[in-house]
Amino acid sequence: MNDFLLRAFLGLDAVLIAPFRLVDDARAGFACGILVTALGAALMGRACAAAVDRVQRAKRTRQEAEIKRHQDTSFSALAVKDRETYLAANHLAQEAYGNAMALAAGRAAALIWPALMVLAWATWRFSGVPLPLVGESAGPAVFFIPAYLAAQWGLGRLKRAKAARRDRAGS
């Protein structure tokens, strides 16, 4: 079992280090590696979150519908100044929200685990290595986290643009 884990780790190491060696220049190679691994982690995270979301869909839809039903009831109660019903419906909506949040936390875990793994790997791989611009005063997280956030932001924009195009084509 230990051999299997070691082989799996070495295989992963070979894949993750490859983009850092795409360019001969060390600084450019480091930048390239950080950007590619950040994009890869963001893509993989989104794919995993989408898979979890797909499996959760029925339950999530049910719970979100319940939240919405109680919220609508509470708004209607407010509209006719029925404070007691408002508080009752609000309490029920809060319970349903707790369950929906538990599902959302699962999707969040699916979204960020690749980034944490890459971060852990990069911290180990570049331990004691002076990095561009910061030397040994900082770890690779300083470069990886902004790159990862930028990748997530960019992918989010792409997804929204794609959805908008699809909507326009459909209408």
Binding site: V52, L103, G106, R107, W113, A120, T123
Partner: peptide, 24 residues
């Protein structure tokens, strides 16, 4: 902080959240 440990556990939680609705 053991980041690789947290990452591995996050992966496990994601898998658990994947399996949960199927078995509930």
């Amino acid at each position: 902080i053991e980041w690789h440990f947290i990452g591995l556990e996050m992966l496990g939680i994601a898998v658990g959240s994947f399996v949960g609705p199927m078995t509930s």
